[in-house]
Design a binder for these strands. Structure first.
Lengths: 338, 338
DNA sequence: CCTGCTAATGGTTGCGCTAACATTTACCCA
DNA sequence: TGGGTAAATGTTAGCGCAACCATTAGCAGG
């Protein structure tokens, strides 16, 4: 047997190693770490010293198993390359970190199948809560969540049943298109990539607005499923100008595409907004810096993360879902590109 | 007592629920899930059915506790807003996912203190391996890692002891500055933000190069600790032109700043590269799209992720650290901005 | 017909921790 | 002084799973 005064050689110090070292019982060490005010200051100090001397780091697995609480929250976003979701993550993290929750962050690559796979993997951690982007889960994913019985908050969109924080993508698409119409444009195009749920809804809003003035025309829509990128924005602009040379405004489904479109116009000597107005979506940092500065929809993505975390915390605490839906709105930011 | 045919109402199905359902022992279920070829196909099938019917999801905490292996890998990067690290993460994930490792992804906000805090939190999961960015950990972080006895691979930089994958930031900074010198520029500025280790090393390389031709001048350096952004790039360019109006080339420590500088030049009517050459660092996607296209250093960040994961896998498997240092190099991408 | 092997399966134990209950101690007020 | 209370600490059991060891069945070889 190993020397009882030292942690066993094979592994790391455990609670009872610390307990032995501090000459108290294991549960007292547990309390000293988790509910310090239930332990006398004398013992607490002795325990703290023992913890430091042994380099003790608690084992979350054991704690989770014993306490039936993992203190982790799973977060699934479509992509970490998209600043929108990173901003949301930051909001979540800001809100959840102080409570000791640890995030399991994963990206789905905009794929429902990957989402299900990741979800299954994360549920193995028995998270106390789950944050998802959008509602387009597979049947399997929904079944997993139902079985798990874990609180779920969906982000970005509205109109889901259950807890949900976001804004109306349709209304935002509509509002931006209305702005272009009010500027006098009548041949407004919609350029989209990465055709996820939200991009489709923005297109929906676009179509609503142009139809109202009888300006809908399939040639004015360019949509490809490829991942969005600045380069693609330029390419799609080229394609658009070929199939609808008379268009006078472009609504890009996100800022990246809009930047690419603007760069392409610069190369082709197309005046923006004189000959062609260009608008984006999301208001990423750079959109205010580019020339001409980009008109876009500012989305409250950071706030969505914060609010989603709040809602989740309430749900974990067992509070009744007062208002399941939280609409955080959006705002139109008009700059020089329109 | 609860009906033994059904999982208990209070919680989720466990291994023994599945075992009961399939009329086998718990350990057989465990084997059917983890080492399927050690179980007869008949039982395996029965177990699979039971798993599906009960919606069983294994509990990683319990598994980790019993098997003394968590099958998780902790990854710490400075920021998720920086595409460089997201690309690295993707490389890591691609390599580690097939092995069933799950990533604990965290950002440190470029702060060694946050890094230590996150590291401590992640070590509570008893990860099988740790991936860190750079080497600037605190004493505490180093002590934590030493105590944990977990394999660690450091990314991005070179010249650490231990396992390490990256490229020489100094040489890259030097190479880019040499390029500007060869283009005939003699008043080359260095503009930097987010003054982390890597940015300082690039500056070091810059200084080496300009000193060789006697062109070093403190007025040609603008460095602020603020987080890097496109907007800041424009601002710093303004500051630079004020304190060194005669400079004829700018080496920005990253692409974001360079974009901002180019936009600022556009606004001021400064010809790039005629009046002022501008170069960046990292070769992010947009750098090829902007006008003029940006000269920059292409960094093998995705490959760094892959290689770091490989090195870590080997270390976890207990293979001797053959070559602790892996230099993946970089390449100069010359475009129109210089 | 027995030995020795392998493949398939099960029983027991313990991973590190905390919930629940039990116990001890100190101290207050009637 | 005794009964009561609250605060501090300990004891026991068990979370869900896999390591370890045992057992059984089937079969080849002498």
């Amino acid at each position: 047997m190993s020397d009882p005064r030292h942690p066993r050689a094979s592994g790391r110090a455990t609670l009872s190693d610390v307990a032995r070292h501090a000459r108290v019982s294991a549960i007292t060490v547990s309390r000293a770490l988790n509910t310090p005010d239930k332990v006398s200051s004398e013992l607490r100090e002795r325990i703290e010293i023992a913890v430091r001397e042994l380099g003790y780091v608690p084992d979350r697995s054991a704690r989770a198993l014993a306490s039936r609480q993992s203190f982790t929250v799973a977060v699934l976003v479509p992509s970490l390359s998209n600043a929108v979701f990173v901003d949301t993550l930051r909001g979540i993290s800001e809100r959840l970190d102080p409570f000791g929750y640890q995030l399991l962050i994963g990206d789905t690559g905009y794929s429902a199948e990957v989402e299900e796979r990741r979800l299954r993997a994360y549920l193995e951690h028995r998270p106390d809560g789950v944050l998802l982007t959008g509602q387009a889960q597979t049947e399997g994913a929904r079944a997993l969540l139902a079985h798990a019985g874990v609180p779920v908050v969906r982000m970005m969109d509205l109109s889901a049943d259950g807890l949900c924080v976001g804004f109306s993508q349709i209304k935002a698409g509509y509002a931006l298109t209305r702005h272009l119409l009010e500027r006098g444009h009548r041949r407004i195009a919609y350029v989209a990539a990465q055709l996820d749920e939200r991009v489709r809804l923005r297109g929906e809003g676009y179509r609503c607005a142009v139809r109202e003035v009888g300006g809908d025309d399939p040639r004015l829509e360019v949509a490809v499923p490829d991942p969005s990128s600045v380069h693609l924005g330029g390419e799609l602009l080229g394609r658009l100008l070929q199939q609808a040379p008379d268009c006078d405004a472009v609504f890009c489904c996100n800022d990246d595409l809009a930047w690419g479109a603007i760069f392409e116009c610069q190369r082709r000597g197309i005046d923006v907004p004189g000959r062609l107005a260009i608008a984006g979506f999301n208001d990423l940092e750079m959109s205010a810096c580019i020339n001409p500065a980009l008109t876009t929809i500012a989305t409250p993505r950071h706030q969505i993360g914060v609010a989603a975390a709040d809602l989740l915390l309430a749900a974990i605490a067992g509070e009744p879902p007062a208002d399941g839906q939280r609409d955080l709105g959006f705002s139109l930011v008009v700059r020089q590109s329109t």
